[in-house]
Design a binder for these strands. Structure first.
Lengths: 207, 207
DNA sequence: GCATTTGTGAAACATCTGTGCTAAAAAAGA
DNA sequence: TCTTTTTTAGCACAGATGTTTCACAAATGC
């Protein structure tokens, strides 16, 4: 029959172009024309794969959210699979490694984090994105919650902590660090943010 | 001579209209026409007080930033003036009160926080706002830093903490809580966020 | 080779945006 | 009342945006 192009692959290619535009010039410049141009496509081609601008926006949002959380989930499941370490510093390092996937520590994760922030803020007033935003909240809540459980279940944990409370504080720290590192990279270097995260986890486990 | 209108007062009135538009419909809808309409003015009138759109944006950003930090500074200076309390829970409560001014705990502060977030994110790609954003960073850094010093100087402080590190963690928590409360008010009620902040301060002072 | 289906490109339209320009209205002094 | 200056209102223009529509190209199955 007709010409065959991997449609799904093409949609992700357009989404990547959108990410690039948002990361470089902000969500306000993410017009269909700008996206098409950076994707090397014509405006008509982009609209062939996405009926709406809204459809492109939600699709890209979900790709971005999944990309971020899948990285963390991979490391998390590896952590849950291995037997509990008897050494405190090892446990801290493992948990730090999982949560660090949610921080903009390298250029790739930085672009993801920038796009993520812009999307979450936009979802506040953009009803078409609110469902995707809800799913995103649940995803990060699940990752952080499971990390907290790992800490709680460790025999090295001497304090009595309320899991929900610590998850909330940890989420706040992650969001806050991510925000600062995205907006103010000059003052918030990657190693700096990572160290703050590690220090907090050490505090939780400290006797 | 001519009709006399308090120009400064008029500029703040326009800024308030801009805040209203941003809080209700997001920064993308903050066009001069929308602002003029919600301010009850004609487009030409708005442009009479602000030559540029950029001038209005920066002016409103600074008004917003100062409004937030002045509230916290007032309480902070009251705290620094009074003699150190010998009771630990009193000190925590005082410091919580200062930092709580940076959180969206009521409708007024919520609108301020929303506008603040949108502006900070926009400043990332909007060179016209980067100076104002820098000033904002310094302002919150100063407030949080001075609160941390209050905690450190207390004879009730038993731990040995690095002030800069704790200030950074505290800023992250404040930013993260603020972000969550702005974006997800259904899951992050005001009392909830306030409790998390208080708990963190108690943790810092705990023996 | 041909027809059919899919992909591509471009032109056109209505809408919204910031900005420049002009003219009327309003108020205070002469 | 008349003049002067500020304030207000409105029009017009260029540019950008989402969307619609249509024509053309390309590739697969017959």
């Amino acid at each position: 029959m007709p010409k065959i192009v991997d449609a799904d692959h093409r949609r992700e290619l357009v989404a990547d172009a959108l990410f690039h535009v948002i990361a470089e010039r902000g969500l306000t410049q993410a017009s269909l024309r700008n996206v098409a141009q950076t994707a090397g496509l014509a405006l008509g081609s982009v609209r062939h794969y996405f009926d709406d601008q809204a459809e492109l926006m939600e699709f890209a949002f979900r790709v971005n959210s999944e990309r971020i959380h899948l990285r963390a989930l991979e490391k998390l499941e590896a952590l849950e699979a291995e037997e509990l370490s008897a050494r405190l510093d090892v446990l801290v390092e493992r948990c730090t490694g999982v949560l660090a996937e949610l921080l903009p520590l390298d250029e790739g994760r930085r672009a993801d984090a920038v796009v993520h922030m812009e999307y979450m803020l936009d979802a506040r007033t953009n009803a078409a994105l609110s469902d995707a935003a809800q799913d995103d909240y649940r995803a990060t809540g699940a990752v952080v919650g499971r990390v907290v459980l790992q800490l709680m279940n460790s025999p090295l944990m001497s304090k009595i902590l309320v899991p929900v409370d610590e998850a909330e504080r940890l989420i706040a720290i992650l969001d806050g660090l991510s925000l600062r590192m995205v907006l103010q990279p000059a003052w918030s270097a990657p190693e700096h943010g990572l160290a703050t995260l590690r220090r907090h986890l050490e505090d939780l486990l400290a006797p």
